[in-house]
């Protein structure tokens, strides 16, 4: 109920949509360079399920960008802005729901926080209803620190353990603390974002072989996420602490509160696991 009320206030304040809104949905992937995110990142089953909530099920876009770069890079936010701007203008989308996963939330938050950086940004912001941020990496992750430390690039040594992307560097905890305090909106003590940023939080990982929870979206991923939890707090999705997932915007729901008590690990929160697709579909 609170989410609905908040949404109504935002509509009043920056009113992008009226009674004849043309609703669309955009899927924004996480860290990585995607050329076929529909198949490789989200899966067709997930996207096709979610978009059934649209009045016109063809009004969707699955973004493919290079999110191995810093969030502000032309290949990251620039690419994202280009695809979203093209989507809303060519299809006359006036009511855009953006679904992000992991670091995709940071790239989207760069756009929302820096509307004067790129002339496409204000149009995107004005036509956006809200962002549904699945497992957002808003405060970074100790796992990024773990792979960077001991491997920090030095000109005299190069990368000791192999190249690490700028996106991984950016998601180190102290780096995201800096960007949240200086370049991004929506965290505690900062101005709010111009659009709602609603977090879906994964709170644990199930990897027991006898647990059916562990198999949705791949058992191998669940095993790895069980180990990575060692670097994280007791509340985490295996890649991100719950505190990071909640750091920006507003909590929509913790996984167990809407999935019948089942966890959404970091891999499952971008798949049609435990009814997540239906929840997102009904939100449109």
């Amino acid at each position: 109920m609170l989410r609905i009320i908040r949404a109504a206030l935002l509509v009043l304040a920056l009113a992008p949509a009226g009674a004849f809104a043309n609703t669309g949905v955009a899927f924004v992937h996480g860290t990585g360079k995607q050329t076929n995110a529909l198949a490789d990142y989200w899966t067709s089953a997930f996207v096709n399920s979610v978009r059934q909530g649209l009045p016109n099920t063809a009004n969707f876009v699955v973004v493919n960008c290079d999110f191995t770069q810093y969030m502000w890079d032309s290949r990251a936010a620039g690419c994202l802005a280009g695809q979203l701007h093209s989507f809303v203008t060519t299809r006359n989308i006036t009511d855009l729901v953006i679904i992000t996963h992991s670091n995709g939330g940071n790239v989207m938050r760069w756009i929302l926080s820096n509307p004067t950086y790129d002339s496409r940004y204000p149009t995107i912001i004005q036509r956006t209803r809200w962002v549904n941020a699945l497992a957002a990496s808003s405060a970074g992750t100790p796992l990024a620190d773990a792979v960077i430390s001991g491997n920090v690039f030095e000109a005299a040594l190069g990368w000791l353990l192999g190249y690490q992307s700028d996106a991984v560097r950016q998601q180190q905890v102290s780096w995201m603390a800096y960007y949240n305090a200086n370049n991004l909106l929506g965290t505690s003590g900062r101005p709010t974002l111009p659009r709602g940023f609603w977090n879906v939080v994964g709170t644990d990982v199930s990897s027991a072989p006898w647990s059916t929870q562990a198999y949705c979206a791949g058992y191998t991923q669940s095993v790895g996420l069980e180990f990575t939890q060692n670097w994280l707090a007791s509340c985490s999705d295996g890649f991100l602490n719950c505190t990071s997932q909640r750091a920006a915007g507003t909590l929509w729901f913790n996984d167990v509160n809407r999935t019948g008590g089942r966890f959404l690990n970091h891999n499952q929160s971008r798949r049609d696991c435990f009814g997540l697709d239906v929840i997102l579909r009904n939100d449109l």
């Binding site: 992991s102 792979v147 491997n151 191998t220 095993v223 990575t228 060692n230």
Partner: peptide, 24 residues
């Protein structure tokens, strides 16, 4: 316990070097 290799960690999104091994 909780032995894991690079393949599992990279599948989980932790970009460790190939040939890495982790344990608790």
């Amino acid at each position: 316990d909780t032995l894991v290799d690079a393949q599992a960690l990279r599948a989980a999104g932790m970009e460790v070097a190939p040939g890495s091994v982790g344990f608790r």
